[in-house]
């Protein structure tokens, strides 16, 4: 019954459902990209460089992973609220606010998974690259390329945490119809309205999206190299 409703929703191509799904997907993609770049850098830095305070950063990252989304939402809210220090930028209740919150949400996951992925590579790899005079960006690229499955799952874990979260989108996006309403905030809304079937149908759409993204990327990696 629920499945039928979900399928009807998907195939009826209801404009609003499509908009909500696209909003969720694009916000998650954008936030993943935004957080990915510094997370890759930090993860790499942690795995290849020795420096003071490194273990503190790792412990900190791991604890940040457990932080509830609403707490992150709340922290960002207090900063980008008009009464907060960055209130003038008017980021609250816009997609940008969501992207900030979601990026912060996925950053520690991606960074610490990248760190452990790169810690697993054989020491012969960087030595071989050094030996062939491969340095800088090319070296980094090769290290990522060689551990791409692990790097990919790190990024996908970050994406997964984002696409399924509700606290940040609700708090920083405001669940505004035709603007910042995402699949998860719709689920929360429909649940509160007692529209359980609709909520579950949206849940199925979420699973469908997440499944498609994962499958596509894994197929991509498999075909590569």
């Amino acid at each position: 019954m629920v499945l039928l409703k979900a399928l009807t929703l998907i195939f009826s191509a209801d404009r609003e459902v499509i908009f909500i799904a696209m909003t969720s997907l694009s916000l998650a993609v954008a936030s993943t990209i935004v957080s990915m770049i510094p997370a890759l850098l930090l993860g790499t830095l942690l795995s290849i460089k020795k420096f003071r305070g490194k273990s503190i950063i790792i412990v900190f990252l791991n604890s940040l992973m457990a932080l509830p989304t609403v707490v992150i939402g709340l922290m960002i809210y207090s900063i980008i609220s008009r009464s907060g220090p960055l209130g003038g930028l008017r980021l609250l209740f816009t997609p940008w606010g969501i992207i900030i919150g979601q990026s912060i949400l996925s950053f520690p996951i991606i960074a610490s998974l990248i760190y452990s992925a790169l810690s697993d590579i054989r020491p012969e790899l960087p030595e071989t690259l050094n030996s062939f005079g491969v340095t800088g960006i090319r070296k980094l690229y090769m290290i990522f390329r060689e551990s791409r499955t692990a790097v990919l799952s790190a990024i996908l874990s970050g994406f997964g945490r984002i696409i399924g979260e509700v606290g940040v989108s609700m708090m920083l996006g405001g669940n505004i119809r035709w603007y910042t309403r995402t699949i998860t905030t719709t689920i929360a809304l429909e649940t509160s309205r007692g529209e359980f079937e609709l909520a579950l149908a949206m849940g199925l759409i979420l699973i469908f999206i997440s499944l498609s993204v994962n499958t596509l990327l894994h197929l991509g990696v498999k075909s590569h190299g």
């Binding site: 012969e124 030595e127 071989t128 050094n130 005079g133 390329r145 060689e146 791409r148 190299g225």
Partner: peptide
């Protein structure tokens, strides 16, 4: 490092074809 190339006891081969390894 500029002058020498080292081959490890358990060599590290890049993921990809035989040709890719040399081409790289």
């Amino acid at each position: 490092r500029k002058r020498a190339v080292m081959v490890h006891q358990v060599p590290y081969l890049f993921a990809g074809s035989v040709k890719y390894n040399i081409n790289f």
